[in-house]
Design a protein around this nucleic acid. Structure first.
Length: 494
RNA sequence: GCUCCGUUGGUGUAGUCCGGCCAAUCAUCUUGCCCUCUCACGGCAAGGACCAGGGUUCGAAUCCCUGACGGAGCACCA
């Protein structure tokens, strides 16, 4: 590799390093081990990309290890969607990362039971049949409930009955014995296991009725997988404090934790919420999860946004605990950098108006890419008439330069070729606009985040392949989705 | 109500721990200019911020106090 190229790579690495702060205490560990722990209750939206993006970047920087652990321990309220497991792995792949290991909490329930029994034997948990509100009232007054001083043996017995499914939902829970007088009420004797009547959608886990809560399951797994660094949202700020009680009973060392705020994204009408998107898809307001109006990763992918652009933008958000707004313009700017060089140029005229053409050449020749003449030219047959976007139509008597074709004057009902030199463009007297031949052009539907637009595109588009990203000159970048009688492109950005 | 956490330009971020090198970094954004047969790409330039008030200090974005604003938890959700 040429030295200057190496220098460039170094510079890139530096830029990445600067975007994210160092992980706390990273040098103290032989290997930085992290996990992304999604709940597979639906396909991912843009906000979900932050975790794999940042963990992926840290994995690269520290030569670390990444686990994808599906925290699917709620068969009811946050019921897993069986398609989401693979969809999430695909999304991680789209972002450019590969987990070193993939696991599902619903496959590890027996492990959680074992640790629950150990915790009970250590005096760290008790079964409790208080009603939720009832317990909450006592807890808020720092009063222990009547079950708190139950013996380990009794608790063992009752927990085994929970595991055996001998209780119904709501009858009894297993609580961690923390500090009922802790000044923060959020940490007092929290629930570790509860009964769920609804079977888990995964067949392998369908028989379990006694399910761990996130704080217990996640806390145990983080230790068992030797996770060194946990990154998670501020909504889980108290989780570490809760889990430390369990870690203390087991004499485990708690991992380093980084909490970050919520991400909002501008530029979307649709909320960044799996359930909201799901409703809109089901109601037919969106044409599926990859509708260009949906703020999902599937949608961005279909629009020709590179995963790397999303990762770059997410890494730039850093890991601060305050809430952040991600500007889509930032993602678009990153993506433009990545795709411009290889995007062939094409003409697309939206909602065009047609004008007969008098005089001029039969064909136009335009470069496929202005910076790469070696890639050749597009030959565009002109025909009897051309179409322009209405905003580009010059007033009667005025001229316009049809890009790669030449200068014309609007005579009112037609365009007449003039013998103007390109100098009129350079002097700023005449605008250069894109156009398509009225007859030879083909219809195209451009799907955008703001709805669909119809137009006509130069016939040479047929030379592209579905999946190509092109730049429709003066319109923007788009990914060709299908090329046939119903040609469709998905708009990326300007 | 109880308990945590945060507040640097339109957006994000660096700097805050260990006060001076910060009249505050970088990116995006907006505007202008250059380049150009694209309003893209590239180049140049400009614009725009330390939540407020007190205090400590020779000196505060940085330390202390008070307040305002914002966020989170107190779920048999994740």
């Amino acid at each position: 590799m040429a030295p200057e190229r190496l220098a460039e790579l170094d510079a890139d690495d530096d830029a990445d390093d600067r975007a994210l702060p160092e992980l706390p205490n990273a040098e103290a560990f032989e290997e930085v081990r992290m996990r992304v722990a999604p709940n597979p209750n639906g396909p991912w939206h843009l906000g979900h990309a932050r975790m794999p993006a940042v963990i992926g970047r840290y994995k690269e920087r520290y030569d670390g290890w990444m686990l994808c652990r599906f925290d699917d321990t709620d068969p009811e309220t946050k019921r897993p969607d069986l398609d989401a497991y693979d969809a999430i792995l695909e999304a991680i792949d789209y972002l450019g990362f590969e987990p070193d290991e993939v696991t599902r909490a619903s496959d590890r329930v027996e492990t959680y039971y074992e640790h629950a029994r150990r915790l009970i034997d250590a005096g760290g948990a008790y079964t409790c049949s208080c009603g939720g509100e009832e317990f909450s009232a006592m807890k808020n007054d720092a009063e222990p409930c009547p079950h708190r001083d139950k013996s380990a043996a009794t608790t063992r017995e009752e927990f085994d009955a929970m595991v055996a499914g001998e209780y119904d939902s709501g009858d009894v829970v297993l609580r961690v014995r923390t500090d009922i007088e802790h000044k923060n009420p959020a940490l007092r004797d929290w629930v570790a296991f509860r009964m769920v009547d609804t079977p888990h959608p995964r067949e392998a886990a369908a028989e379990y009725r006694c399910w761990p809560m996130l704080d217990f399951q996640s806390g145990v797994d983080d230790h068992l997988f030797d996770v060194t660094h946990i990154i998670r949202g501020i909504d889980l700020q108290d989780s570490a404090k809760r889990q430390r009680f369990v870690y203390d009973y087991f004499d485990w060392e708690y991992p380093e934790v980084v909490h970050w705020g919520h991400v909002q994204v501008d530029a979307y009408d649709v909320a960044l919420s799996t359930s909201t998107i799901k409703e809109q898809v089901e109601a037919g307001e969106l044409d599926g999860w990859d509708d260009p109006r949906a703020p999902t990763l599937a949608s961005l992918r279909r629009r020709g946004i590179r995963g790397e652009a999303i990762v770059d933008a997410m890494a730039e958000l850093g890991t601060s605990t305050s809430n952040v707004d991600l500007a889509m313009s930032s993602v678009y700017a990153k993506n433009r950098e990545l795709i411009d060089d290889e995007a062939d140029r094409r003409f697309l005229v939206r909602d065009g108006v047609e004008r007969p053409l008098v005089g001029g050449p039969d064909t136009a020749e335009a470069p496929l890419h202005p910076d790469h003449e070696d890639r050749g030219v597009r030959e565009i047959p002109v025909g009897e008439a051309v179409r322009l976007e209405p905003a580009d139509l010059p007033a009667t008597g005025e001229r316009v330069w049809l890009k790669s074709l030449g200068p014309v004057r609007n005579t009112g009902d037609a365009f007449e070729f003039t013998d103007d030199d390109i100098a009129v463009v350079r002097e700023g007297d005449v605008d250069v606009v894109h156009w398509v031949p009225a007859a030879a052009s083909v219809p195209l539907r451009l799907r955008t985040p703001d709805g669909d637009v119809t137009g006509r595109v130069e016939p040479g588009l047929a030379a592209q392949e579905a999946g190509d990203v092109v730049q429709f000159e003066r319109v923007g970048y788009a990914r060709i989705d299908r090329l046939d009688d119903d040609t469709v492109a998905y708009f990326a950005h300007r």
